[in-house]
């Protein structure tokens, strides 16, 4: 019933800017809140692991503490070499954080650029750009990455650059449709008539004021996707190698002990992956629902 009330509200104020409190339903607020929590802990983990302010070294092997189940001392338990799983999860963020940000930066920057160019110069650039981007889009991503790994044995940074490049088409098509819609609006004409420069109109009125939500949403989704790719590569054993922790190789190493009853070794990293990616996707989804001006009838 509450949901319906908000929907009705949205219809009445079609096209207008409404304060967040009126646009967001409870579901949106919960998913965005959860997503922000995920972003928060990812960031904190990353800062801890970069500044190396651990209570105990996550790489330290202690044979006497092998296979300890979760307790107050080791909240996620210890693994087959007696290393604390929680600390290894914290350390594991290092494996994907910077590469993920690189991939997101590449996809949003170039997506934005190509989107604007193809919306403003449809005759010359749109077709070329979109043929090119469709070619990228048509190659299955994971297989493409695996082929690259087999051929060149690249670092994670290079792999994530490829991931970033392969998500350009999606971002740029969103931006293109948004800009195409906006540039026909009368307020853009009014800005032009006022004497604002084209660059100012594009970057202030079109990008910053009207399409930043699209970029934020695509960035959160892209981050989730690159974590997924990194963890799957590590799981397959081609990403980060063993002594250095990564969420993927922790799952992979732990799975050997799963049927011995030591389920936390692989389940807990897997759950962390699940929660993190779900959080980022929900953040994107919730922001999308809050920012979109689509009227559902």
């Amino acid at each position: 019933m509450k949901r319906f009330y908000y929907e009705k509200e949205r219809i009445n104020i079609e096209g207008f800017h409404v304060p967040l409190s009126k646009r967001a339903s409870v579901r949106d607020v919960v998913s965005v809140g959860f997503g922000l929590f995920v972003v928060f802990y990812l960031f904190v983990f990353f800062v801890i692991s970069v500044t190396n302010t651990f209570i105990k070294d996550p790489m330290q092997v202690e044979i006497s503490k092998m296979f300890l189940s979760p307790s107050f001392e080791h909240i996620f338990g210890t693994d087959f070499l007696g290393r604390d799983i929680f600390l290894r999860i914290v350390k594991g963020t290092e494996a994907f954080f910077i590469p993920g940000i690189i991939s997101v930066t590449i996809s949003t920057t170039f997506g934005l650029l190509f989107g604007i160019i193809s919306a403003y110069y449809p005759r010359y650039f749109s077709k070329i750009i979109f043929y090119f981007l469709n070619i990228i889009d048509s190659i299955p991503r994971l297989i493409f990455i695996l082929i690259i790994i087999v051929l060149f044995n690249p670092s994670i940074y290079l792999i994530m650059t490829f991931v970033g490049i392969s998500s350009i088409p999606k971002v740029s098509s969103y931006i293109k449709s948004k800009v195409e819609l906006l540039k026909k609006q009368q307020f853009i004409e009014a800005c032009k008539e006022l004497g604002l420069s084209q660059v100012n109109i594009i970057f202030k009125h079109i990008v910053w004021l009207s399409s930043k939500s699209v970029l934020i949403i695509q960035a959160t989704l892209g981050m989730g996707e690159s974590i997924l790719i990194e963890t799957s590569l590590s799981y397959l054993g081609i990403g980060v190698q063993e002594p250095i922790p990564s969420w993927g190789n922790m799952v992979s190493m732990g799975k050997d002990f799963f049927f011995q009853g030591k389920i936390w070794l692989s389940t807990i990293p897997a759950l962390v992956i699940l929660v993190t990616i779900m959080g980022l996707y929900l953040l994107g989804d919730g922001l999308n629902s809050i920012y979109s001006e689509k009227v559902s009838r």
Partner: peptide, 13 residues
């Protein structure tokens, strides 16, 4: 120019 349709001559955001 003072536009005829002022509601669409401003960026609503």
């Amino acid at each position: 120019m003072i536009f005829q349709d002022s509601s669409s001559s401003f960026n609503p955001r």
